[in-house]
């Protein structure tokens, strides 16, 4: 304090440059992400120009996919993508949240780490391995046991009618569910761990049992975050390609039955890209890519809006 010159509040000469350089470098990196999305969208648009001009908006609701007759429509693929992903969410979210609850609230301390590691290893299994396992293990089991049982007990629903082939929309849903389970579980686990202990104690102090504490203090506090975990899972599910292609049956049709084969946007691009001999065929595949990108973005936007609708009124002050 006695030597003001040495503790000057002015920056030392030259010290501003690294600051500015870092700011610009970080800004550039952030901008790259936006530029990349725009470039990808643009490339897909450019590639699909031919198909866009030929079919127009009708491409989206046409359910015909006939390369021989040069007729292309996206509807069966949009349907297949959405249905298989929703099935996967229906299976994976309850399972993932339950696993996360077990890991954070119920499991003995020394069991937590091994189970967490096992789940993370599940995430490391390559997609094609899941596909092979699906073909040789899962599908025969589904075909001979679960599907037969479903048809027998719930056969009055259109969902569970029709012939059983094995490869099917439901098999794809199960495979995708297994594949998104790790991300849903690990994000749910982080969310549940972030619930303040004070919330649990508040419920315990009212004489709540363990299950009641989970319900009134933990799950309700965490519901916004858990919804976010489901959305991240959905993001993965929509784009999942390899394993789905191996088990879904790859038939462009719209059927009410979950036992029927289907096709997804990602699968058809991966499958038919090499055999797209005509310009229009290739262009239509490009347009499917554009549709997939749009579906993914729209689903995420819709989820954001729903998220606000669910939680905006009550927990807006919780931060």
């Amino acid at each position: 304090m006695s030597t003001p010159s040495s503790t000057s509040i002015l920056p030392a000469p030259g010290s501003r440059f690294p600051n500015i350089a870092f700011k610009w470098a970080a800004g550039l990196a952030a901008a790259m992400i936006i530029v990349l999305i725009i470039l990808v969208g643009w490339e897909l648009y450019a590639g699909s120009r031919l198909s866009l001009s030929k079919f127009g908006a009708g491409f989206l609701w046409s359910s015909e996919w006939d390369p021989v007759a040069e007729k292309y429509g996206a509807l069966p693929f949009i349907f297949g993508t959405l249905v298989s992903s929703l099935l996967a969410l229906l299976i994976a979210v309850p399972l993932g949240v339950a696993t996360a609850l077990f890991l954070t609230e119920l499991a003995p301390m020394r069991m937590r780490q091994p189970i967490t590691m096992a789940i993370e290893m599940l995430a490391a299994v390559p997609s094609v391995i899941f596909g092979l396992w699906g073909i040789f293990v899962l599908i025969p089991w589904l075909r001979d046991h679960l599907f037969v049982w479903l048809k027998h007990t719930l056969g009055f629903l259109p969902l569970f009618q029709g012939p059983i082939y094995g490869v099917s929309m439901l098999a794809a849903g199960v495979i995708i569910a297994i594949m998104i389970l790790p991300i849903v579980t690990s994000i749910s686990r982080e969310i549940l761990r972030s619930v303040p202990n004070l919330q649990r104690e508040a419920a315990y102090a009212l004489g709540a049992t363990r299950w009641e504490v989970l319900r009134i203090a933990v799950l309700s506090y965490a519901r916004r975050g858990l919804f976010g975990a489901a959305i991240l899972g959905l993001g993965r599910a929509l784009g999942e390609t390899m394993a789905v292609t191996m088990v879904i049956g790859n038939r462009p049709q719209i059927s009410a039955s979950l036992f029927a084969p289907g096709y997804t946007l990602a699968s058809v691009i991966a499958n038919e890209f090499t055999e797209a001999t005509t310009d229009l065929y290739l262009s239509s595949l490009f347009e499917l890519g554009l549709v997939l990108l749009a579906v993914t973005i729209l689903v995420n936007i819709a989820a954001q809006i729903m998220l606000k609708g669910i939680t905006g009124s009550v927990s807006s002050k919780v931060a």
């Binding site: 303040p196 004070l198 919330q199 104690e201 508040a202 419920a203 102090a205 009212l206 009134i216 203090a217 309700s220 506090y221 519901r223 939680t311 009550v314 927990s315 002050k317 919780v318």
Partner: peptide
């Protein structure tokens, strides 16, 4: 019953 150091109402409840 118990009252804690920091108030802890359940945030999702009225």
């Amino acid at each position: 019953g118990m009252v804690f150091q920091k108030s802890n109402p359940f945030p999702t409840m009225s």
